[in-house]
Design a protein around this nucleic acid. Structure first.
Length: 382
DNA sequence: TGGGGTCCT
DNA sequence: AGGACCC
């Protein structure tokens, strides 16, 4: 296969700069509540990092300009335009978050090209990559790099967006190799260098698919390098992680990933949440929920499908000083009064009343109304 | 630490 | 319903 991974450079910061060109060239951070969730390269040069607290960021970089990124609408809109452009190259596009996409272009690769393609962009380990694989994949990947370049050129010319691309024979390697030259560059991995790319990650935690929980289990086993993960006896790994996960992550450690690019279709859930210092009364909760419902209903209406379930998310300030999230879900019937096949419109008063009542009932299952409670986040999801 | 999502158990 | 993972 030939898989391309496209990753937009500091996505939120680019969108803000396109919407407000006067930000261009200035150190820019995108803030959500107390956190700089991402920032542009000017800010990074001055010491700002992703997920840093606003306080620390301003200490490091007093000239930092901040844009509020709590409402994701602008980013969703740009993400959709990016997706549409990539889809014009291949129907096999999978979104990961708002700013990353995998594209399978295997079917677009010329079986017998008249002229041998040259690579566009970087090659991973250029020096020792002069061998051409007997199966023909080297030329196929080179052709992939040309297509990736065309995709990135089009994102730049039509949207003004710069991006990175990785080109490889599977999703794992495409994503990893694309990150080796940033920003606004692309890198191709020929399969002979796969093991070297994996080893260059150093720590197993750097493999996508190995998160903090699995990493902790691996460290208990003394596995703290990719090579140790490769060399670990599979039965030992199965004992700790279960057969499926054990097999999967040991394969990943060798750069093997058979997972397919899964076409991103309509979302399985649509939600909105909001965090805040603290809420202590049910009237405040009701008000917050109404506000969230208006926000989420915009998205639901655009989607067009009639929700059949609602989920409430509540984050409580626990006595032990750290917070806990709980969810409650129930069926909901929003068809009463209208033909059940009628298009979804703006939220009627009846529907709003029904949803809010349902949500308040769910809320009472989460908080014990006799005792005092503090809520620091509410979320609605359909 | 934020405001989203997916899939598996 | 929660927990793991991703951004």
């Amino acid at each position: 296969r030939v898989i391309i991974h496209i990753d937009i450079d500091c996505f939120y910061a680019q969108v803000e700069t396109i919407l407000n060109p006067s930000l261009c060239g200035k150190p820019l951070g995108i803030k959500q509540k107390n956190i700089v969730v991402t920032c542009n390269y000017e800010a990074r040069a001055l010491g700002v990092e992703k997920l840093m607290s606003i306080k620390t960021a301003l200490e490091k970089c007093p000239s930092l300009v901040l844009a509020n990124g709590e409402d994701l609408k602008k980013y969703r809109d740009m993400s959709e335009k990016i997706y549409q452009i990539l889809q014009s190259f291949s129907p096999f596009v999978e979104k990961l978050g708002l700013d990353e996409n995998f594209i399978d272009i295997s079917h677009k690769i010329n079986k017998s090209p008249e002229i041998k393609p040259e690579v566009s962009g970087h090659i991973f380990e250029e020096k020792n990559s002069d061998e051409t694989c007997a199966c023909g994949c080297t030329d196929r990947l080179k052709e992939g790099s040309i297509i990736a370049q065309e995709m990135r050129n089009q994102l730049k010319s039509e949207l003004g967006i710069t991006s990175c691309a990785g080109i490889a024979c599977n999703k794992l390697l495409a994503k990893l190799v694309g990150a080796t030259h940033k920003p606004n560059q692309q890198t191709t991995l020929f399969s002979a260098s796969s093991l070297n790319l994996m080893k260059s990650l150093k720590h197993p935690r750097n493999i996508p698919g190995i998160g903090s929980a699995m990493n902790r289990k691996l460290e208990v086993l003394g596995i703290d390098t990719i090579e140790k993960l490769q060399a670990t006896d599979l039965f030992k790994l199965i004992e700790a992680l279960g057969v499926k996960t054990a097999n999967q992550i040991q394969q990943l450690s060798f750069g093997i990933d058979d997972s397919h690019v899964k076409i991103t279709d309509r979302p399985k859930s649509i939600g909105a949440e909001d965090g805040f210092p603290t809420i202590k009364s049910e009237t405040e909760v009701r008000k917050k929920l109404k506000c969230l419902l208006d926000r989420v209903w915009e998205l639901v209406e655009k989607d067009g499908r009639r929700p059949s379930q609602v989920k409430l998310t509540v984050r409580k300030l626990h006595a032990t000083n750290h917070s806990v999230r709980e969810t409650r879900q129930t069926a909901i019937d929003l068809t009463t009064g209208v033909p059940s096949n009628a298009p979804l419109g703006p939220l009627s008063e009846n529907q709003e009343k029904k949803v809010i009542t349902t949500l308040m009932n769910l809320f009472e299952k989460v908080v014990n109304c006799d005792e005092s409670w503090q809520v620091t986040l509410l979320g609605i999801s359909f």
